[in-house]
């Protein structure tokens, strides 16, 4: 870990201004990912701006019947919120499927969206990694890639976005709200928030330097039955091989997004429309153009089978 300086910001615009104006500055919230990465010098910020005093820790109703989740609401509090459990069950299920109780107590909503990939080559500074060091190459391509991406990846990076919460948010059409150093506010659809790697895998999201997430809003509830099916080798405390976030309506229509497969929560709206035709039709469309490796080709049939499991549960619940 490199030496760094630290300060606690008092309001969001001030925080944004400091980070925008100081090269090497970064925000820190729960620090559950950033500190680990700093210890092994994958992240080397020179200045940390702690945002924990910004009072962004409330969950409020929006005027159009949705919810506005403050950036600093912890994963634990978000998952436990009565309104979320009642109206956005997929989100609670996704959050509690991730990390551990201790980490969820510390991890924030905004930080969860910004967690970095778990590609093992990204974590080893002796290995080439375009995401860690642009232009150095990608040791994962041709290497151990069982956990890595099957779609939306590029010739420069085959890493995935590893989170669970964002996959549920993608199904719910969440919107990320930000503020920048000049006080300018911006609303970014979750669909557009995480980038596909292309030739700039070092840039995970569309956030600009210093731009600070202040909240995530959820549109009004859409009803339906909510599922988060997370497939992993270990029963807990493991990243998804494949996950399926789905909201299925009584008539068999619905929405579905996949985790553990791509640089972003993977949802193809045209594939949603095929849900009444069953899992295979959906995944055939959603994973059209997939470029798996030999190690991770299993993720494609696994995605189909995991979705089929969800659809079977939905059908069972409808019968009940």
């Amino acid at each position: 870990m490199r030496a760094f300086t630290y300060e606690r910001a008092k309001d969001p615009v001030e925080a944004a201004r400091i980070v925008a104006s100081r090269p090497g500055a970064k925000f820190i919230a729960g620090g559950t990912n950033l500190l680990d990465l700093m210890k092994i010098e994958v992240e080397t910020p020179t200045h940390l701006v702690d945002v924990q005093d910004l009072k962004l820790d409330r969950i409020e109703k929006t005027r159009d019947g949705g919810l506005r989740i403050g950036a600093l609401v912890t994963n634990t509090d978000l998952a436990a919120d009565d309104r979320v459990r009642r109206d956005y069950g997929v989100l609670t299920r996704a959050i509690v499927a991730g990390a551990s109780g201790q980490l969820r107590n510390k991890a924030s909503t905004a930080g969860n969206l910004l967690q970095r990939t778990r590609c093992p080559y990204f974590y080893d500074t002796n290995m080439a990694c375009n995401k860690r060091k642009p232009g150095s190459g990608c040791a994962a391509i041709g290497g151990y890639s069982r956990q890595l991406g099957v779609i939306g990846v590029s010739n420069d990076c085959i890493a995935t976005f590893p989170g669970d919460m964002a996959v549920a948010m993608r199904v719910l059409d969440a919107v990320v709200e930000t503020v920048d150093a000049s006080g300018q506010r911006r609303s970014i659809a979750i669909a557009d928030f995480h980038r596909l790697w292309g030739d700039r895998p070092d840039q995970d999201t569309v956030l600009r330097p210093g731009e600070l997430i202040t909240a995530v809003t959820l549109p009004r509830p859409i009803g339906g039955r909510h599922f988060y099916e997370k497939v992993r080798d270990r029963a807990s405390y493991a990243y998804a091989l494949v996950s399926v976030a789905a909201v299925i309506q009584r008539d068999g229509t619905g929405r579905v997004a996949f985790g553990g497969v791509a640089p972003r929560p993977w949802r193809v709206e045209a594939a949603d429309a095929l849900l009444p035709q069953g899992a295979a039709a959906v995944t055939a469309r959603a994973f059209q153009g997939a470029t798996p490796t030999k190690d991770n080709a299993f993720k494609l049939p696994l995605a189909t089978r995991a979705l089929a499991s969800v659809l079977a549960q939905a059908a069972d619940q409808n019968r009940a």
Binding site: R118, Y121, Y123, D124, Y144, R234, S236
Partner: peptide, 16 residues
């Protein structure tokens, strides 16, 4: 050995 930490080298947890 690429997966040289306890996030990527998985050992059973209580839930297993």
């Amino acid at each position: 050995f690429v997966n040289h930490d306890l996030a990527s080298y998985e050992v059973p947890v209580h839930a297993d």
